[in-house]
Structures are given as structure tokens and as C-alpha cells.
Design a protein around this nucleic acid. Structure first.
Lengths: 170, 170
DNA sequence: CACCATTATTTGCTTTCGCAACTACATTCG
DNA sequence: CGAATGTAGTTGCGAAAGCAAATAATGGTG
């Protein structure tokens, strides 16, 4: 199989596997997070990006890109987290159009507990599945894909957010 | 959260990459499908599973699993496709509780055009990104993950109680 | 400095989706 | 057989998310 082009349906299948894997994981996390922290996976996704950013804060648009939400979706998500007292908004001093989302003290405290628990859950879910090499390979291949997709976003004239995602995550 | 092993951090990042890749692809497909066929990516996902099944039909529950929807979500999705005349329901003769979703003639005709176009789109999006080996590897790794997740679903999918993991089990 | 195009975020509206309750059929077992 | 339990799918309902339009602040131009 070394140099043959990949067949059409193999490609479609791979894409399908990607979607299925993502939603499978999402659902698994969702259940656990809901039960233990009363958080949706999406909320957690937002919170974890904040928790892993310097100063526990990010611009709304940056956060939207990282959390795979549209600006509008993120606005609502942050609204909800604000109501729960986990996140606050801070007006950007340099540009008064802009806003930062910031973890509150409560939010930070929650995440200090939730992140290790989540890591343990991921570990539990993936344990014994991959060799270290495989896991590294998967990470590499996915990063390649993601970077390409976000670059393509700009290229194809879709909503061009700067594709420098996950600054604190890697 | 400060002193997590690096390995775990990488894991979280990989999971993040998976989510981002999936939504990136989803958004890309969505835009194209919406523009060219007035189809959502989710509808297309349902249709393509049917189109690729023997007889262009699948049981509702099987289709739900493949399309990453809950039974209820699939019911609605098939409702919509039925209103559009692309899919029909067929009662299962062996088990009158059950139903098949079947592509109609229109649905088949649509997919006969849409699938090659979609394949071309996927090709366009992925062109030059992976070697054949890499693509095969990605497919392999994702299949492993998906199969594991679906097995896990059956195994301890719904119970949050049995958090007892034996470390070093594998 | 007033004007226009641009960028960052929010809001109105609509669609989609999941959960839980419900219906209908099937299967098991006394 | 007939009640009890299980399974397939649907429905009511509320939450979440996207699109498009609105709002607000910037930046550039003449």
C-alpha cells in the first residue's frame, strides 16, 4: 500500500471515523462532567482554554476559535458561565470594542479540581489502547490536519480567525 | 493543576486536536454542502451512510449510531429528509417495532451526484497534506479509537459509579 | 475633523439536538 | 395463555448554536 493513492471510499471512511471518534469522546466526557461538575463538555472546553492561558484570560474571538464556536455561540456560552460565577468579562483597555473572558476565583478553584479529574478520565478511557508511538503519531497527524484546516479557512475565504490555536496547550 | 505529568498534558492536547479537526472539517463541508445541495452536514452524514449501505437502507438505530446522533435526533433528521423526499421509512417485516430508513429514487439520484462532488471536495481539502502511509495510519488509529469508544459505551458507558480502575491493568 | 470601511462582540430568530417520558411490539417465564 | 420485562422508535420540551442584522469602537482618507 506504500505509494498507491488512497481510494475514495477509504478517505470518506477516515473522515467518518474522525467524526465518530470525536462525538464518541464528547459524549463520554459530557456524561462524566455533567455528573461530577454539572458542566457541559462545551462549557468545560471553554473553561479549560481559559485555565491554560496566561492570566486565565483570552479575547472572546480567540476563545471562540479555540472552543470551535462561532462568536455568537461563545457569547452565549460565556453568558452562562458568567451566570454561574465561573467567568467574568473584562473590557480590553487598548480596544474598547474587545472583551476578555477571565476565570473568576471560583472558576479557577473549580478547574484546579476538574482538570486533574478530567485527565484521569481521559487516561481511563484511553488506557491500553495505544502504544506511546501510536499516540504520538496520532497527535502528529491530527495537528497536521488541524493546522491545515485552519490555514484553509483563511484561504477559502471562510471566517478568517487567526489560526494560531492553543497557545498555552502545546 | 500545576504539577501534572507532561504525558497527560499531551493527551489533553491530542483530544483537543481531535475535536478541533472534526469541527474544522464539519464547518468546511457544511459550507460547501449548504451552498451546492442545500444540505446540512448532518443530513449528508445520514444520507451517505444510507447510500453506502446494501440496499440503501439501514435500521434507525444503526443509522443513529453511525451518524453520531441519539435515537431522537435521528428520528427528527429522518423526518426532515422525508419531507424533502430524499428518504422513506420502511417497516421491518421481522420486527414491527423496527423501521428502516431507505433512500428514495430522488435521494439516490442526489447522492449519485453529491458523493463524487464530496469526494472531490475532501480531496481538495486534504491534497498534499498526508502521504499514503500517513493517511492509512490515521485511518487505522482512528478506527481503533472509535471501536474502543463504542465498546466502552456498551461496557461502562452509562454508569458513572464504577470509577474503580485498576492501575497497571495493562 | 467628518466619513466610510473594518473589526469585535452582541442580539433576534430559527433550527437542531438531547433527555426523559411514552407507545408499540417482542420475548421470557410462570 | 398472560403478566412482566426488554427493545425500537417517537414525541414534548428545553437548552444550545448558527446566521444575519445590529451595535460599538477603530482606523484610514481626504
Amino acid at each position: 500500500m506504500a505509494q498507491l493513492p488512497v481510494k475514495d471510499d477509504e478517505r470518506l471512511t477516515t473522515v467518518g471515523l474522525l467524526f465518530e471518534s470525536a462525538s464518541g469522546l464528547r459524549r463520554l466526557f459530557q456524561t462524566r462532567l455533567e455528573a461530577e461538575r454539572s458542566l457541559s463538555n462545551q462549557s468545560f472546553e471553554v473553561l479549560i482554554r481559559l485555565a491554560r492561558s496566561p492570566g486565565s484570560e483570552l479575547r472572546m474571538s480567540e476563545l471562540a476559535a479555540q472552543a470551535s464556536l462561532t462568536p455568537s455561540g461563545l457569547t452565549r456560552s460565556v453568558d452562562r458561565l458568567q451566570e454561574q460565577g465561573l467567568v467574568a468579562r473584562r473590557v480590553c483597555p487598548d480596544d474598547r470594542r474587545g472583551a476578555f473572558a477571565v476565570l473568576t476565583t471560583d472558576g479557577r478553584a473549580l478547574m484546579d479540581k476538574a482538570i486533574p479529574a478530567h485527565v484521569a478520565h481521559v487516561d481511563e478511557v484511553l488506557r491500553g489502547l495505544y502504544t506511546a508511538d501510536e499516540e504520538e503519531m496520532l497527535s502528529l497527524l491530527l495537528r497536521k490536519l488541524r493546522d491545515h484546516l485552519f490555514a484553509a479557512d483563511a484561504e477559502w475565504g471562510l471566517t478568517a480567525e487567526d489560526a494560531d490555536i492553543c497557545p498555552g496547550a502545546e
